[in-house]
């Protein structure tokens, strides 16, 4: 099966003046359509950089990204991003934040009424229909993050890019949103690339977990397949042998072989 999203030998260096730091080296990954991939690694290893490269927000130094047979090197709505800090526009209501994306992507193809319905539909998908006239400052952190997800979903992207989407949330809200994302993934079959710090989250949600080595010059250290049937239920998994094994493998990778070393 040909890869739907292909990261091909991606390298990235940042240079300021004469000093150059290599953040990523030779990162290659083939992702199939509908796959859920998590990227896990220690802070500062270059996960966000990699995601921004796929999004087209950061140019590569070497290599490239191929989506659905075409090279991509500029941002676009086919790769919707849920940012680490939600990035809603504070002067727009929840509805208008999503509507802006819907209007931009579907202005030529759908009528005004259809776009309205589609906006509402996506807000309902993340259970935010009730707060659609509120401004971002008036809703909680978890709700903001859900609106960010709704905005991304509403673009009907080929790939959904999530940068620690639940990072800033408490455990309960996080679990709730993870379930929502699993449901959405099950019903829509999106291709998802998600960054996370959380081992349980990675194992619960992903088909494959990409573990990155520490920077500088981070590479893909290991890729772990999570062969758990879907739909997955978090409570049942607690004692599942496959789950525990996968969890252990990731923890071992992070804490034994690639322990976090404070940059000297």
């Amino acid at each position: 099966m040909p890869a739907y999203l292909e990261l091909s030998q991606i390298g990235k260096s940042f240079s300021r003046g004469a000093a150059t730091t290599e953040v990523l080296r030779d990162v290659s990954l083939d992702i199939a359509k509908g796959e859920y991939i998590s990227i896990i690694g220690h802070s500062g290893c270059g996960k966000s950089t990699l995601l921004n490269i796929v999004a087209g927000l950061t140019p590569v130094t070497t290599g490239g990204v191929i989506l659905d047979g075409k090279e991509v090197n500029a941002p676009g709505p086919d790769r919707a991003v849920v940012f680490q800090n939600h990035s809603l526009l504070p002067w727009l209501t929840v509805y208008d934040n999503v509507r802006l994306a819907v209007d931009k992507v579907f202005s030529g193809t759908r009528s005004r009424a259809e776009r309205h319905d589609w906006t509402i539909h996506n807000l309902d998908l993340v259970q935010m229909g009730h707060a659609r006239d509120k401004r971002p400052s008036e809703v909680s952190g978890g709700m903001k993050q859900r609106v960010g997800i709704a905005r991304a979903l509403a673009m009907e992207p080929k790939v959904l890019l999530l940068d620690e989407p639940f990072g800033a949330l408490d455990a309960l809200t996080r679990a709730h949103l993870q379930d929502s994302v699993m449901q959405i993934h099950a019903s829509l079959g999106n291709t998802i690339l998600m960054i996370t710090h959380d081992v349980d989250e990675a194992v619960l949600l992903s088909d494959r977990i990409v573990m990155m080595t520490n920077g500088p010059s981070a590479r893909i250290g290991e890729v772990l397949e999570v062969n758990l049937p879907r739909p997955r239920k978090r409570l049942e998994l607690v004692t599942n042998a496959t789950y525990l094994k996968a969890r252990e493998a990731v923890l071992k990778f992070l804490h034994e072989r690639h322990r976090y070393v404070e940059a000297a």
């Binding site: 709505p77 919707a80 940012f83 526009l89 802006l100 931009k104």
Partner: peptide, 27 residues
């Protein structure tokens, strides 16, 4: 930069960027 990134992902053109992001953000 977050707002600029949103504009980039949505591919807002310069006029849309002016009205939807620049003016409200700099208001």
């Amino acid at each position: 930069q977050d707002y600029r990134n949103v504009a980039l992902v949505l591919r807002l053109n310069p006029i849309e960027f002016f009205w939807k992001i620049m003016l409200p953000s700099a208001a």
